[in-house]
Structure formats: C-alpha cells, structure tokens
C-alpha cells in the first residue's frame, strides 16, 4: 500500500516536471501568438493596446516582409533539392566505391555538422569575396547546400547500413542498366532516409540565421528580416507571419502523420 502511494507520487512528480519543461519550450511561442494580436502601432510594440486580428490582414501589405519570406522559401526549396541530390548520390557512391581521398571527404563532411556556424559563415564570406562572387541569392543557396549536404548523407547512410547489395546485382543480371537499377531499385529502398534528410535540410535552411547573416548581401531572408526588426522592436505583423508559419507546419505534420493523435505506433 505504502509502496503504491509512493509510486503514484513519483508518477505525479514526473508529470509535473515534464509539464514544466513543455511550458518552458512553448512560453516564447505564446508570447509571439499574443503579440500578433496586439492593437499597438507604436514602437517597440510592447504595451498591450487591445485585441485585434488586423495584423493578419495587414501583413500582406508589407511587401518587404513578404519578399523576405519568399526568398526564404526559394532558398530552402532550391538548396534542399540540390543537397538531397548531391547527398543521396554521394552517400550511395561512397558506400559502393573505393577511391583515393575517400576518408578525407568523409572527414570533411563532419565539419559543417560540428563546427560553430559562425566559422562556416565567415569562411564562406571571405572566400566569396576573394573570388568576387556577388553576395545574394546565389551565395545564400551555395552556403545552405554546404551545411545541408552532410545531414542528407548521414540520413541516407543510416538506411544503407542494412542495405542488401545482391538486389542490385539481381537487377543488373536481369538486364537492367546502372541508371535503371539506381532509380528502380536503390532509390525506393533508400526513400525513407532521403525523405528524412530532405526534411532536416529544409528545416535547417528556413531557420538559418548565422550563416545567412554573413553571406546575404542585400538579399534578406525571413530570419534576417526578423533580426533587422529586433533593433526597433518586432512589429505585430512579423509575429503574425510567424504564427501563420507555425500553424501551417503543425497542420502539415498532423496531416502527414495522422496516427500522431490516435495511438502509439507499434
């Protein structure tokens, strides 16, 4: 009996602790959502002037905000696509073939993962300025591809660990060429790893602040726009856009993983 109450108490303590951690994680989000409905129009937009949903309409008149969001989406989509192609080919190629310098490439892949982003950012900035590539959309995409490729490779590699080479041989024995075999046999097997890597790449790209900060030139991404606005106070329309983005991602996840709200996966 005594033991039971103790176990119960422990369980309750656990629930309280986890709830506190979730509160910690979601607290700034609630600040963003509440501030997106603040009727204030004067900087730094901190005092509460009553409830309004106007900002959700007005944000569509803020062309610089919208274009920064557009830039972020373009950069994220293009660099995710490129990083996924480069990473998938690279992971499979490095798994199948031995070549000189392989271990060097392998070692280089870890650098973008572990090194502080600021170091990657300034190193790209210095090299872009050395070879006089004008900073803008192109340099942003190159930089994002650079830090996304390793994450795609590691995800695909995790799938390759249990990969059975003989199914490829069977395909080639049956007369399929390399290209057909790659698209019809290899890719479908690796698909979950590729998808996971691409999703991670996309997430990293849309939220990147530090590396973009150094290589952007005049092309503002959404995080850089936020950074700029922080100096004078983040306006409610920026909060409104953030709320919409969050809402969209949550809906997307609920739709794609509909079992999420039902029951635990077996």
């Amino acid at each position: 009996m005594k033991r039971k109450t103790k176990a119960k108490l422990q369980k309750r303590l656990g629930i309280v602790f986890c709830s506190l951690v979730y509160m910690f994680l979601f607290l700034p989000i609630s600040v963003i959502v509440v501030n997106s409905m603040n009727a204030t129009t004067s900087k730094p937009y901190l005092s509460w002037k009553g409830f309004t949903l106007d900002w959700y309409v007005k944000l569509f008149d803020n062309s610089s905000l919208l274009s920064s969001f557009g830039n972020t989406m373009i950069i994220a989509l293009v660099s995710t696509l490129l990083a996924t192609i480069i990473g998938t080919l690279g992971a499979v190629g490095m798994y199948k073939y031995k070549f000189r310098g392989k271990s060097i490439i392998d070692g280089l892949l870890y650098i973008p993962v572990v090194i502080p982003e600021i170091v990657l950012g300034i190193s790209l900035l210095t090299i872009f300025s050395k070879v006089s590539i004008p900073r803008g959309m192109l340099t942003l995409i190159l930089a994002h591809v650079t830090f996304c490729v390793p994450f795609v490779i590691f995800n695909v590699r995790a799938r390759l660990d249990g990969y059975d080479n003989s199914i490829e041989e069977a395909s080639m024995d049956l007369g399929a060429n390399r290209v057909t075999t790659f698209f019809e046999i290899t890719l479908p097997v690796l698909a979950p790893g590729i998808a996971g890597g691409a999703l991670l790449a996309f997430t990293l790209s849309i939220d990147d602040v530090i590396i973009s900060y150094f290589v952007n030139g005049q092309t503002k991404t959404y995080p850089l726009k936020v950074m700029e606005s922080i100096k004078s106070g983040v306006a409610p329309d920026v909060n409104a856009l953030s709320t919409l983005i969050l809402l969209a991602t949550v809906i997307l996840v609920v739709l794609t993983q509909s079992d999420l709200l039902k029951r635990r996966e077996k």
Partner: peptide
C-alpha cells in the same frame, strides 16, 4: 514543434 518557429523571434 517550437523549433519550427524562427529562433530569433
């Protein structure tokens, strides 16, 4: 989920 909102904001 919280980490899908921009970290600066």
């Amino acid at each position: 989920i919280p980490f899908w909102t921009n970290s600066l904001i």
